[in-house]
Nucleic acid binder design. Structure first.
Ligand code: SF4
Ligand code: SF4
Lengths: 157, 157
DNA sequence: ACATTAGATGTATTCCATTTGAATGTATAG
DNA sequence: CTATACATTCAAATGGAATACATCTAATGT
């Protein structure tokens, strides 16, 4: 009973996009932020784009941005998309399938689970707080970060 | 977001035990009923025994039976045991872990999920109905089943 | 035009957890 | 004592997720 990494990566990307406001953020940048697979995240971004959660911009200086304000994106819808809405059990071949009451109960429990998530929006977990902005190293508005630990694009690279 | 087969197998065993009343049912028999791995089910039975859901009886003519009436066994407790109560996501190494609000939301959703299961007992999904008893081929009280499709322990085996 | 960047898509490989299998020990009824 | 059935441990196999690789399309600056 775990959320797939696929789902969490999607959430991570959405959080970063929400915190970045209207700025375009490249998939490569997000992948580097979390230290996760660039290719994997790319496929996740495809899915998010097709589902209408994000708006991809191609070409040089392209990137991703939220398709709607974070306050209008439901966590339930996101998880429904990334996890799929299929049943929690696969009863094919089970002897007692015709008489088993378990699938109904599990479906009800799953609905309750998603109902809670439906009560939250992306903006609830990704407010554009200083803390998140600092973690993402997003300049607030007074120029780039002066963080000493910042690699700062070594020119001799 | 699927229930592990481990959990479903545990539920299957519990359903069969509930339907079998006070009779001892061997692990081998349950495994054959569902056509699943004997070894795997044995480990699941160990866990159920240690958790106090079932009462194992060793030795010749041994087997398993419910430790308590099916009406006193909560599905929530069962799933909590088989799935473990650990978090849905592993945040170790995630950059934004200190500022992320997602784990709290997921925990709340999980609680709602389990709350629904807590509202059901084993007896709710495994009533000793004729249908289940027939599927398990349990004699009602008037001698063994005369089902033509029954293999009936070929003596020449 | 052309090169460069960045997303889109498909395939293949690697990785890991779950599941299964096998072997051995322990307990009990007969 | 022996046959049966649960207990425990370890090794192998399976399957799905995650990653890597390759190629294409689209936008943009030069
Ligand atoms: S036991 Fe009930 S839920 Fe589990 S597989 Fe068989 S039918 Fe489906
Ligand atoms: S994003 Fe939030 S939930 Fe997902 S791993 Fe990072 S901290 Fe944990």
């Amino acid at each position: 009973m775990k959320l797939s990494r696929h789902s969490d990566y999607a959430l991570r990307a959405m959080i970063q996009l929400a915190t970045s406001g209207d700025e375009l953020v490249s998939i490569r940048h997000i992948a580097q932020t979390y230290g996760i697979s660039h290719n994997h995240l790319m496929k996740i971004a495809q899915g998010l784009g097709r589902a209408g959660f994000i708006e991809p911009v191609r070409g040089r200086h392209g990137g991703l941005r939220l398709a709607r304000p974070a306050s209008e994106i439901s966590l339930g819808a996101l998880v429904r998309h990334t996890e799929g809405e299929d049943s929690l059990v696969d009863c094919t071949g089970c002897l007692i399938a015709p008489a088993c009451g378990l699938p109904d109960v599990l479906a009800e429990a799953m609905q309750a689970f998603l109902a809670v998530l439906d009560g939250y929006r992306l903006s609830d977990i990704a407010n554009r707080s200083h803390m998140l902005r600092a973690l993402f190293d997003i300049p607030t508005s007074a120029g780039p970060s002066q963080n000493a630990a910042d690699p700062v694009q070594c020119p001799a690279d």
